[in-house]
């Protein structure tokens, strides 16, 4: 049990640092910016109590905000994403039941399941974040393309991360 807590706290710290020191320096074509830290919310164990899910999502967003001068925007987007996580989990059926001890990842539930699960949640997060960032629907389609392309890159990095750190045994 303790092991899970330590693992997630460690993941929290590592992802915040990775996000602010590495991924925030990646700008494909100048305006596509992946937000890989949402992987923390995706990978929280199934048995995480709902309140902890919301609070921990808020805090990871808040820490990223502190470093990127976007006070509250990442926090709002992360909480929004976390709020939808239980519904998305219920929506996507898996070949295996969500048993105790299973973690949401490619290793336990397969590529297809993980891809759909991440795709929906990453899109929710990025949509909220990018529209909050510009705070206007003025340039609706410009922001829309930023959401789409950034989501693609975020997903790419999350899936690469899955294959690097959680290899099938």
């Amino acid at each position: 049990m303790n092991n899970i807590y330590i693992k997630n706290i460690l993941r929290f710290v590592v992802l915040v640092l990775l996000q602010v020191l590495v991924f925030n320096n990646i700008h494909f074509r100048g305006y596509i910016n992946p937000y890989v830290y949402v992987m923390f919310i995706l990978l929280l164990p199934f048995e995480t109590p709902p309140w902890l899910l919301l609070i921990s999502s808020f805090s990871i967003g808040f820490f990223v905000d502190l470093y990127t001068d976007t006070m509250g925007m990442h926090a709002a987007a992360s909480v929004f994403m976390a709020f939808f996580r239980p519904s998305v989990l219920r929506m996507i059926s898996s070949t295996r039941d969500y048993e105790l001890g299973l973690s949401p990842g490619i290793k336990d539930l397969g590529f297809n399941w993980f891809f759909n699960y991440s795709l929906i949640l990453v899109l929710i997060h990025h949509t909220v974040y990018f529209y909050l960032e510009v705070f206007t629907f003025h340039e609706f389609f410009y922001t829309f393309w930023r959401v789409i392309f950034s989501s693609i890159f975020t997903l790419l990095f999350i899936i690469i991360g899955q294959y690097i750190f959680y290899k099938k045994k």
Partner: peptide, 15 residues
């Protein structure tokens, strides 16, 4: 709780 956290976030943004 979701509502409360979102309100906090929006207060931060507004400030």
């Amino acid at each position: 709780l979701f509502l409360l956290l979102e309100i906090i976030a929006f207060i931060l943004i507004a400030n």
